Amino acid sequence: MSSVAPQANEHPLRGIALLVIAVLFFVLLDSTSKHLSQQWPVSLVVWIRYAVHLLLMLLLAPRHGLRLVSTRRPRLQIVRAGCLLITSWFIVAALQRMPLAETTAIMFSAPLMVTAMAGRLLGEQVGPVRWAAVVLGFMGVILVAQPTGDIDLIGVLLALCAATGFAAYQLLTRLLSPTERPLTLLFWTALVGTVLMSFALPWAWHGPTPDAWSAAQMVAMGVFGGTGHLLLIQAFRHAPASTLSPILYIQLAWATLLGWVFFGQLPVWTGLIGILIIASAGVMTALASRRKSPIQGAAKTPG
C-alpha cells in the first residue's frame, strides 16, 4: 500500500483502470510471497522483494538524478521506510500461516487505525461517521479472525502487527507528502528496506541457494511490487484520491479470487461477511474524509 497526492484530474477513467491493475499486481506480489514462504525463510523472501524493487528504482536514476534521493527530512524518511519494512516482514510471516483473502482483509484495517489515531497525532477532526466506520471495521476483523479457531491465531496476530506497522507508515506518509516527491518516497522505502534486510539476512538465512524456478519467482515478486507502486502513483496523477480511495478495496476481491485459483482457499461464510464489512467500513472512511485530506485512504498493500 502507498499514499500519493493527486496531481491531475483530467482522466479519471484512466486513473481507475491503472488503480485496478496496480492492486492486482499487489495481490500477485502477496500470492508469490505466500508461495515462496512455504519453502524459503521469510527474511530471504522480503530481502529479494526489496532488492529487486531497488534495482527497478535505480533504472530511473539517470532520468531523475539527485531528485530521486533528495529529501528535506531524511530521518523521517528512514523511520517511514522502516515501518514499511516491518509491515512487509509481518505480512509475509502471516501469509505463511493464513489464507490470502483473510490476511489481506486484516491488513485493510490499517486505514481504520489511521482514522482512530489521526485526531490525536495529526490534529484531524474525526467525526461520528468515521468513528462508526472504525468500530464497524474492527467488528469485521473479529469475524475474519474467526474466534471459533478455524484460523491460525498466530497468523492473525502477525497480520494485525503488519496492519499496525502499515498504519504508522501511512501516518508518516501524510506528514512527508506535502514536502516530498512521490518517487522520492518510493525510492527511500526501497533503499532503506534493502540495506536493513542485507544486514539482517546473514543471521536469518544460511542456505541453500534458491533454484532457478524459485529465483525467477523471487525476481517476479520484486517486479510485481515495484510495478504496482509505479502504477499507483500514475493512477493518482489522473484522478483525485476521493475518487480512487474507495476503489482500492477491490484488492479484497482480487485476493479472494487468486486465493481460490492459486491455493484452493475460499473464506467461510463468516469470513466473507467480515471481509465485506471491512471493505464497507473502509469505503465509509474514504468517503467521509474526501474533503478533509487529499491523500486519505490511499493505501495498499505493502508492498
Rank of each mutant, 00 (worst) to 15 (best):
I86N: 03
M57D: 06
R80Y: 11
I86M: 13
R67A: 15
C83A: 14
V79I: 14
R75K: 12
H64S: 08
L85Y: 10
R72N: 10
V52E: 00
R80G: 00
P74C: 00
I48V: 12
R75D: 11
R80S: 10
L84Q: 08
L76R: 14
L85C: 04
P62F: 01
I78F: 02
A51F: 05
R75L: 15
L58Y: 02
L55K: 10
L54W: 06
M57P: 03
R49N: 12
L54D: 02
V79G: 05
T71F: 11
R63N: 07
V52D: 02
I86D: 05
L60K: 04
L54T: 02
R72K: 13
G65L: 13
C83Y: 07
G82I: 00
L76W: 08
A51Q: 06
L68P: 01
G65K: 13
R67E: 08
S70F: 10
C83E: 08
A51I: 04
A51R: 06
H64G: 04
H64D: 09
A81K: 03
G82D: 00
Y50E: 03
P62A: 03
L76V: 10
R73G: 00
P62C: 09
A61H: 06
R67P: 03
A81E: 06
Q77V: 05
I86L: 15
G82E: 00
A81M: 00
G65M: 15
L66V: 07
L76N: 05
L58K: 12
A81P: 00
I86A: 15
V79P: 06
M57C: 10
